[in-house]
Amino acid sequence: IDVRFTVNGLDVTVRVRTEEIAERVKELAKNGVDWREIQRIAEELNK
């Protein structure tokens, strides 16, 4: 599942395995978490 969001004007796409992880990623993006941090968290959750 590809999750797309915009952080500080940057369009970011993170690929995740499940809808649940996708929701977590969207939540982080909404809360203004840095995209590199979101990427790292997504990689952890995908394991």
Rank of each mutant, 00 (worst) to 15 (best):
I1Q: 06
I1Y: 13
I1C: 06
I1K: 04
I1P: 02
I1W: 15
D2V: 14
D2K: 10
D2A: 11
D2G: 05
V3L: 13
V3D: 01
V3A: 02
V3T: 02
V3C: 05
V3Y: 04
R4G: 07
R4W: 13
R4Q: 14
R4S: 13
R4A: 10
R4Y: 13
R4M: 14
R4C: 10
F5D: 01
F5V: 12
F5P: 00
F5R: 00
F5E: 01
F5S: 01
F5L: 15
T6R: 11
T6E: 10
T6V: 12
T6C: 11
T6M: 11
T6Q: 12
V7M: 10
V7T: 07
V7K: 03
V7Q: 15
V7W: 10
V7F: 11
V7N: 05
N8M: 09
N8Y: 05
N8K: 07
N8Q: 10
N8D: 13
N8A: 09
N8C: 07
N8G: 12
G9H: 05
G9R: 03
G9Y: 03
G9D: 06
G9N: 06
G9T: 04
G9K: 03
G9F: 04
G9L: 03
L10T: 12
L10V: 15
L10G: 06
L10M: 15
L10R: 12
L10A: 10
L10I: 15
D11H: 13
D11K: 11
D11C: 11
D11G: 08
D11P: 11
D11M: 15
D11W: 14
V12K: 07
V12T: 04
V12E: 03
V12D: 01
T13M: 10
T13F: 11
T13R: 06
T13K: 07
V14T: 03
V14G: 00
V14F: 10
R15V: 12
R15C: 13
R15G: 04
R15N: 14
R15M: 11
R15Y: 12
R15I: 10
R15L: 09
V16R: 00
V16L: 03
R17W: 13
R17Y: 14
R17K: 14
R17T: 09
R17I: 13
R17G: 07
R17S: 11
T18Y: 03
T18K: 02
T18E: 02
T18M: 02
T18F: 03
T18Q: 02
T18C: 03
T18L: 03
E19C: 08
E19W: 13
E19A: 12
E19I: 11
E19V: 13
E20K: 11
E20N: 07
E20D: 11
E20F: 10
E20A: 13
E20C: 09
E20P: 04
I21P: 00
I21Y: 03
I21K: 01
I21G: 03
A22V: 04
A22D: 00
A22C: 04
A22L: 05
A22H: 03
A22W: 04
A22M: 06
A22R: 04
A22Q: 04
E23C: 05
E23F: 10
E23L: 12
E23H: 11
E23V: 10
E23S: 10
E23A: 12
E23G: 07
E23R: 13
E23N: 13
E23P: 00
R24H: 13
R24D: 02
R24T: 14
R24W: 07
R24C: 13
R24I: 15
R24N: 04
R24K: 15
R24M: 14
R24V: 15
R24P: 00
R24A: 13
V25M: 06
V25G: 00
V25C: 05
V25H: 00
K26V: 09
K26H: 08
K26E: 06
K26L: 14
K26Q: 09
K26T: 08
K26S: 07
E27L: 12
E27P: 00
E27T: 09
E27V: 09
E27W: 13
E27D: 10
L28E: 02
A29Q: 07
A29P: 01
K30P: 01
K30A: 14
K30Y: 11
K30G: 09
K30H: 11
K30I: 12
K30E: 12
N31W: 10
N31H: 11
N31E: 13
N31L: 14
N31Y: 09
N31K: 13
N31C: 13
N31F: 09
N31T: 10
G32E: 06
G32P: 02
G32N: 09
G32Q: 07
G32L: 08
G32C: 05
G32Y: 05
G32W: 03
G32T: 04
V33E: 06
V33Y: 10
V33H: 08
V33R: 06
V33Q: 05
D34E: 11
D34H: 13
D34G: 11
D34C: 09
D34I: 07
D34L: 07
W35I: 14
W35R: 04
W35T: 06
W35D: 02
W35N: 03
R36F: 12
R36I: 14
R36M: 14
R36T: 14
R36H: 13
R36C: 09
R36G: 12
E37I: 11
E37K: 06
E37N: 05
E37L: 07
E37Q: 08
E37V: 10
I38E: 00
I38V: 06
I38W: 02
I38S: 00
I38Q: 00
I38P: 00
Q39L: 15
Q39H: 08
Q39F: 10
R40G: 05
R40F: 07
R40Y: 08
R40T: 08
R40I: 09
R40L: 11
R40A: 11
I41Y: 07
I41L: 08
I41D: 01
I41C: 05
I41R: 04
I41K: 04
A42W: 03
A42V: 15
A42E: 01
A42P: 00
A42M: 07
A42I: 12
A42C: 05
A42R: 01
A42L: 09
A42F: 04
A42N: 01
A42Q: 01
E43I: 10
E43W: 08
E43F: 08
E43Q: 09
E43P: 01
E43N: 10
E44W: 09
E44P: 00
E44Y: 11
E44V: 08
E44H: 07
E44F: 09
L45S: 03
L45R: 01
L45P: 01
L45K: 02
L45W: 11
N46F: 03
N46L: 02
N46D: 06
N46M: 03
N46K: 02
N46S: 05
K47V: 12
K47E: 14
K47Q: 14
K47D: 12
K47T: 11
